[in-house]
C-alpha cells in the first residue's frame, strides 16, 4: 500500500530525514518509535505534504501513485489521513460544517452522492459516541476551546468519518490519560481491516498495548535503525532508547 524508498527531507536546508525505507502492506499496523527529534513527526508531515519540508531525494508510492506529485488535498482524497499532533482551532466554523464539507468532498471524489443533513447528523452522532464526545461538541467551532484530550478524540472521530486507506497517528497518545488512551485505541481498532493500514508514530510504548502493531520501527537521527515486531516496543519500554546506542539528549538537540 505504502512504499517509501530512500526518503530524504529537510527543513530550511537542515536535513531531518536521511534515507527512510519502509513498506506497509494492506491491513498492517506499523509503529514508528524514537526519541524526540529523531524525525518521527517529520515523516508523518512529509507523507501528507506539509510544505515546510522539502523532499530532497527518494520516492513515496501510495497504491502505486507517486505521492510526491500530489497536492495535500489530493493525497487526502486518495485515502491518506493524518491525526495531527497539535490539531488547530478554526473559530466560528462548526465541527459539523467542517466535517460535512470534508466528507461530502470525499464522497464526490468517489462519485457518491452527498449525504443529506439528517443522514449526516446520524452518522456524526454515532461516531462522536464511539470516541466519547458529547454531541454538543459537533456544534462547537472546530477544536475551539477543546481540551488537549478532546482535540485528540475529535481527530479520531474525523478519522472514523473519513474511513481512510491509511491512517497516520502523530503522537496521538501524548498528553492523554489512560481512559482517553483506551477510547482512542478502541476507535482505531474498530477501523482495522484487511484493506486499511495504519502508521502509528509514538514516543511511548503504552499506546501499543492497545493498538497492537504488526511491525515496529525505531527511528533515530533520520534513519530507521531497527525493525522488529511488537516485542521491540516492549524492549524499548524496558531499556529506553539508550539500549540501541542512541543518546536521547543528543538526538533531541
Amino acid at each position: 500500500m505504502l512504499t517509501i524508498k530512500n526518503l530524504h527531507a529537510s527543513v530550511e536546508g537542515t536535513p531531518i530525514l536521511k534515507g527512510i525505507n519502509l513498506e506497509i502492506k494492506p491491513g498492517e499496523v506499523h509503529a514508528v518509535m524514537g526519541p524526540n527529534g529523531s524525525g518521527k513527526s517529520t515523516l508523518a508531515q512529509v507523507l501528507v505534504g506539509h510544505e515546510a519540508f522539502e523532499v530532497t531525494e527518494g520516492e513515496i508510492l501510495f497504491d502505486g501513485q507517486n505521492l510526491l506529485e500530489l497536492e495535500v488535498e489530493e493525497r487526502a482524497l486518495a485515502g491518506l489521513f493524518l491525526a495531527f499532533q497539535y490539531p488547530v482551532e478554526i473559530p466560528g466554523v462548526s465541527n459539523l460544517q467542517f466535517l460535512r464539507t470534508a466528507l461530502n468532498t470525499l464522497r464526490k471524489h468517489h462519485g457518491q452522492d452527498e449525504l443529506d443533513a439528517p443522514s449526516f447528523m446520524k452518522l456524526a452522532k454515532e461516531k462522536a459516541k464511539q470516541v466519547d464526545l458529547s454531541p454538543d461538541f459537533l456544534k462547537r467551532g472546530v477544536n475551539e476551546g477543546f481540551s488537549g484530550g478532546e482535540k485528540k478524540r475529535n481527530e479520531i472521530m474525523q478519522m472514523l468519518m473519513m474511513e481512510p486507506r491509511l491512517g497516520i497517528l502523530d503522537e496521538t497518545d501524548s498528553g492523554l490519560d489512560i481512559d482517553a488512551l483506551k477510547t482512542i485505541a478502541n476507535g482505531v481498532n474498530t477501523l482495522r481491516a484487511d484493506n486499511r493500514s495504519f502508521l502509528v508514530v509514538t514516543h511511548y510504548q503504552r499506546l501499543l498495548n492497545h493498538i497492537v502493531p504488526d511491525v515496529v520501527h525505531v527511528l533515530a537521527n533520520g534513519q530507521i535503525i531497527k525493525t522488529g515486531d511488537k516485542q521491540l516496543a516492549m524492549e524499548l519500554e524496558e531499556h529506553g532508547y539508550g539500549w540501541l546506542g542512541i543518546n536521547e539528549a543528543e538526538a533531541a538537540g
Partner: peptide, 29 residues
C-alpha cells in the same frame, strides 16, 4: 495560518474553499 490551511486540506478540502470557510467562521457573529 498555514497550519489551518494544512488541516483543512488534509481533510480533502481545496484551498479556496478552506480560506472561504475560515473567513466565514471568523465573520459568524
Amino acid at each position: 495560518s498555514d497550519e489551518q490551511m494544512l488541516f483543512c486540506r488534509q481533510r480533502g478540502i481545496d484551498p479556496e474553499q478552506a480560506v472561504s470557510m475560515i473567513v466565514n467562521g471568523f465573520c459568524k457573529e
